[in-house]
Design a binder for these strands. Structure first.
Length: 887
DNA sequence: TCAGTCACG
DNA sequence: ACGTACGTGACTGAA
């Protein structure tokens, strides 16, 4: 049985463009519509197994419809350039897929499709027609199924005449009448004003066609009767415009559309050009052959160091060189160390020396270990932080690293998602390097290759590092980020590694006891929920919970997610008054989170030998320059609610008689804003050391300090948060649960007072549009390509990011400075106290009793003095026997 | 592997 | 008119 798939090319490209975020490859080519188109094609080929295939496009601007109605498709915003530049790519893609494409000047894709489906109908062949446009439903028949895209791009809804009958109560032909009556704003088809889908359907159910409706206006009432009579001509013309023309003079010979599969080679090449990495992987085009793809492959000799030759070879180590440390596994604190490679380039000969880890660890590895630990021997590598950790857990010291390619690449573009040697080689147009996944496989398929292949790949990673060093070093200079790199980020990597290796002690017994308590409480609540709901179900499943609440119990559902009812805390809080069970569910959720994430999750991370957890701070993830924390995440330990806050009691000093000391910046982001914006009012507030939210309330509401009540302060606080996040009236209205108008008025009042802040917000967006990026005080940079996008949502997001990133990023700069300075001070003063954690605006230490007074003074002093601003910085400090008590 | 939810600053 | 507050990571259930 043959099956023809017809794709409405323009429609699907449009849907894909607006459904997906604006992706682009490293040469700046936008690719989101191409990507969406590709995934749709792949899915169709796999699931539908078509024997025939074609894509129809609109050709030219003017069609016969414009002759009838010059306003046709008038008022439609012109296709944004980000989309139109993708059409040639889509056409090229279709060639690689070997799918025939049709376009005919003077006709729309609809008409081509109409003509072809008519031919298929006559021939009795099966057709699947894919479009984003419901007009196509008029073409449905016993042979023609119409697939309309739902949200997203790969999800479609299928329509046969039966489904159309069920959903609209109409035949496919009546879809045209529907549009004739209701019109279509996107095509500028008028229809009858005031008639929407509901009214139109009612009329058609009664009368059948536009013509019959017009003939029976007598049975309509009042205003509606007048309108229909007045716009009778429009309705007729609209119906004509909506009718797909099915007599296009074109070849309809069936075998013109035969489909016998794509050209794998061409498709692989296309995907590489577009940088569709996930697809390349999924498609399994066979082994990667860089040379076959026309990539430059440099010659390199890969030497494997052995017991026999190690003595001779280490003699070649010089005062400076590129190395690579291969440590496999996500968590560098428990990575499997594969080995160390060093790379040389002498008289145009590339050589890599791979030292398997067993050798490095043994007696024969001693000279190399000494070289690695020698601060005066300068090394360049990829990922200093990870390398230090992986080696340290094996008792090997790494010092003297003066250039980390990973850190440099991150600073040059902190939003780059593929920060790997292979990705960076491609990004900076250097000779190709296979991706680790292509060599090792991934997930369950991960295998180290045999020795020759392994040493070659690792050697090439070192060689890629060597090529990247000078390129990135120059880029850092150009971006004026050399100081940020050499004096802050790179030194910080070692400071972080030290903190993590030290770890923080956890009272595992206390944590287990907390767990028992939680399990008991959860048991009770669970029974109570089952009783109240009248049925046992999985409370952790939002799907099941939604069914119970909104179907079984019939509670009002007002918020939806992509997949069904939303059951998040906001929803549940509003439902709480309706049914007792809702409060119990909220309670259950809260405790279940504590139990699963903070009791069980944390216990899994405690090393039994030491009773400590060793988090891994990631320095190259956050787009703003913040750190993030993993395995476990110690930057989101509960504090806001007392039940959760108790978790902090299990974080204790690692030595008896010591204390936990914590210091946090007070309002660092608003102080940074005061400095950057130079707003007089805001500066004044901090210079007078006032409570900033109270001060904001006084200014915004125009009252004396004594008149500011708790609610006013709460609202002012929300406004301050909003300002830092890049304010919008909608966001503020959601947060404060007030109307958008009121929120807008708040914001206006705020800006009327804090005029410098308004100017900053306006200017930073303009700067971002002009430069394409924003910067922090220390020149950290974030590119915002979407700031000029034609899509309102994407553009607005970029604008808010432009406002927020310099603030959040400068705050991150400051605490990083404080950490590097603090580390130096502790060493210089010979203090035993140790820095353990960073939580964005807070530093946590463990301190012996005799240093308490020193540290209570020193820590806030260093933090406040980390960077001189035009307003004072200030840090509050406290200490206690646990993290909980250091509040 | 993705979506939903929720913990933090 | 459009529909989101900025930045993260971990866990669970459901495909």
């Amino acid at each position: 049985m043959d099956k023809l798939i017809i794709i409405d090319g323009n429609s699907i490209a449009n849907r894909a463009f607006y459904a997906l975020p604006l992706l682009s490859n490293s040469s700046g080519l936008h690719t989101n519509a191409v990507y969406g188109f590709t995934t749709m094609l792949l899915k169709l080929i796999e699931e539908e197994k078509p024997t025939h295939f074609l894509v129809a496009f609109d050709a030219g601007k003017i069609t016969f419809r414009h002759k009838e109605y010059t306003e046709y498709k008038g008022g439609r915003a012109k296709t944004p350039s980000e989309l139109s530049e993708q059409f040639p790519l889509i056409k090229e893609l279709l060639k690689a897929f070997k799918i025939p494409q049709f376009e005919l000047s003077g006709y729309e894709a609809d008409d081509i499709i109409g003509t072809l489906t008519k031919a298929a109908d006559a021939k009795g062949e099966k057709v699947l027609l894919v479009s984003g446009d419901k007009d196509m439903l008029q073409l449905a028949s016993d042979h023609v199924t119409v697939a309309i895209t739902r949200k997203g791009i790969t999800e479609v809804e299928l329509y046969n005449p039966a489904e159309i009958k069920e959903k609209y109560g109409l035949t496919p032909a009546q879809i045209i009448d529907l549009k004739g009556l209701m019109g279509d704003t996107s095509d500028n088809i008028p229809g009858i004003p005031g008639v929407g889908e509901k009214t139109a359907l009612k009329m058609l159910h009664e009368f059948g066609t536009v013509e019959e409706v017009l003939a029976n206006t007598a049975s309509l009432k009042g205003k509606m009767k007048e309108k229909v009579e007045e716009h009778a001509k429009d309705a007729i013309m609209s119906k004509e415009l909506a009718t797909i023309f099915r007599e296009v003079p074109m070849e309809t010979e069936w075998d013109t559309f035969r489909y016998d599969g794509y050209d794998g080679q061409a498709l692989a090449g296309m995907f590489r050009k577009l940088e569709f990495k996930s697809l390349l992987e999924k498609m399994d085009f066979g082994a990667v052959d860089l040379e076959a793809e026309g990539q430059v492959v440099e010659s390199m000799e890969a030497v494997v160091v052995t017991e026999a030759n190690v003595g001779e070879l280490v003699g070649k180590l010089s005062d400076s060189g590129v190395i690579h440390v291969e440590a496999v596994g996500e968590n560098p604190h428990q990575a499997v160390n594969v080995g160390v490679v060093w790379f040389t380039h002498d008289e145009d000969v590339n050589t890599s020396y791979y030292v398997p880890f067993q050798l490095l660890k043994g007696e024969a590895g001693e000279p190399l270990r000494a070289w690695l630990a020698d601060d005066s021997k300068k090394k360049q590598l990829f990922d200093l932080h990870r390398s230090i950790l992986a080696l340290a857990w094996q008792g090997i010291v790494l010092k003297g690293v003066d250039f980390d390619v990973l850190l440099a690449a991150y600073l040059l573009d902190p939003t780059e998602s593929n920060l790997t040697l292979s990705g960076l080689s491609a990004k900076y147009s250097l000779p190709g390097l296979k991706a680790d996944e292509d060599v090792f496989g991934k997930g369950a398929k991960f295998r180290l290759p045999e020795l020759t292949a392994l040493s070659d790949h690792l050697g090439r990673k070192a060689m890629a590092t060597a090529r990247l060093v000078p390129v990135l070093a120059e880029e850092l200079e150009k971006g004026e980020m050399h100081q940020l790199f050499y004096e802050l980020e790179q030194p910080l990597a070692s400071v972080l590694a030290e903190m993590e290796l030290r770890g923080i002690a956890v009272d595992a017994e206390g944590l287990k006891a907390l767990g028992v308590e939680l399990v008991n409480k959860l048991d009770t609540i669970m029974s109570s929920i089952y009783k109240l709901a009248g049925v046992e179900f999985n409370i952790n499943s939002p799907k099941q919970l939604g069914e119970i609440l909104f179907e079984k119990l019939g509670l009002p559902a007002w918020k939806k997610t992509k997949t069904g009812y939303s059951t998040d805390a906001e929803v549940l809080e509003r439902l709480a008054p309706y049914n007792e069970v809702v409060g119990q569910i909220l309670n259950y959720r809260q405790l279940a989170k504590l139990q699963s994430t903070y009791v069980e999750g944390l216990l899994k991370e405690v090393r039994p030998e030491t009773g400590k957890v060793h988090t891994y701070y990631r320095q190259t993830i956050a787009a703003t320059g913040r750190l993030s924390s993993q395995f476990p995440n110690l930057q989101n330990i509960p504090i806001r609610l007392e039940e959760g806050r108790k978790i902090r009691k299990v974080f204790v000093p690692s030595e008896p008689g010591w204390y936990i000391l914590a210091a946090d910046y007070s309002q660092i982001e608003l102080r940074v804003l005061a400095h950057i914006s130079q707003d007089e009012k805001l500066k004044e507030a901090f210079l007078q050391n006032m409570d900033i939210h109270t001060k904001t309330a006084m200014d915004v509401f125009g009252v004396e300090e004594s008149a500011v009540d708790a609610n006013m302060r709460r609202q002012a606080k929300a406004v301050n948060f909003g300002i830092v996040y890049g304010i919008s009236d909608y966001g503020l209205s959601q947060n404060l649960d007030i109307t958008r108008r009121d929120a807008a008025q708040f914001i206006e009042q705020y800006f009327a007072v804090f005029q410098g802040v308004r100017k900053y917000m306006d200017d930073i967006v303009k700067d971002a549009r002009r430069d394409g990026y924003v910067t922090t005080l220390l020149q950290r940079r974030r590119y915002l390509p979407e700031i000029t996008h034609s899509n309102f949502n994407l553009r607005s997001f970029a604008e808010r990011t432009a406002m927020n990133t310099p603030i959040q990023g400068t705050a991150a700069d400051i605490i990083k400075l404080a950490m590097v300075q603090m580390d130096a001070r502790l060493k210089k003063e010979g203090l035993k106290s140790r820095m353990l954690l960073q939580v964005h605006d807070e530093l946590v230490f463990e301190v012996p009793e005799e240093e308490l007074e020193t540290m209570r003074r020193l820590v806030p002093e260093v933090m406040a003095g980390a960077l001189k601003l035009d307003v004072p910085l200030s840090a509050d400090v406290d200490y206690g026997l646990t993290w909980y008590d250091a509040k």
